[in-house]
């Protein structure tokens, strides 16, 4: 049931990215181009996503178990630290260079959209690089 629900959520998320235009890099770059010919469409995507998700998170805050009986694990961190700031700056540079963020990268990879596939390769190595630098693997002796 857990697996089925996760699969369904992934499918719905992907359809949402495709329908909204988030999976089209040119559309995303048009949204980020506030100084040029601005396409504000994706602001409606954010508004739509947040307004549907908000009551669900409100429900989650007032329950300790999900409707499947699983424990609810919401992030507890609240502070803004150097890593959050620097990481977000780097993410924004990559997003602005390509018009692609992680969700659309995977949707594009699955659908054979080549620019997203090349981006996804970089994405994977970026994740690996971060954990190599910050959480070095403890190699067993001998």
């Amino acid at each position: 049931m857990t697996i089925l629900l996760a699969l369904l959520a992934g499918l719905i998320f992907g359809l949402g990215l495709l329908l909204s235009g988030m999976s089209n890099p040119a559309k995303v770059l048009g949204f980020l181009d506030i100084g040029g010919a601005w396409d504000p469409s994706l602001a409606f995507t954010m508004a739509g996503a947040i307004s549907v998700a908000m009551p669900c998170f409100f429900w989650a805050r007032h329950h300790s178990r999900t409707w499947l009986g699983l424990p609810l694990e919401l992030p507890a961190r609240t502070g803004v630290d150097r890593k959050l700031v620097l990481g977000s700056v780097l993410f924004g540079i990559g997003w602005g260079l390509s018009g692609i963020c992680p969700g659309p990268a995977l949707v594009g990879l699955g659908g054979g959209f080549l620019p997203a596939g090349v981006f996804a390769l970089g994405l994977y190595f970026g994740i690996v690089l971060y954990s190599r630098i910050n959480e070095p693997v403890q190699r067993p002796d001998a």
Partner: peptide
Amino acid sequence: AGLLVGYGTRMA
């Protein structure tokens, strides 16, 4: 760009 997004989103 993918590399920056991967690294940056893990950091943030």
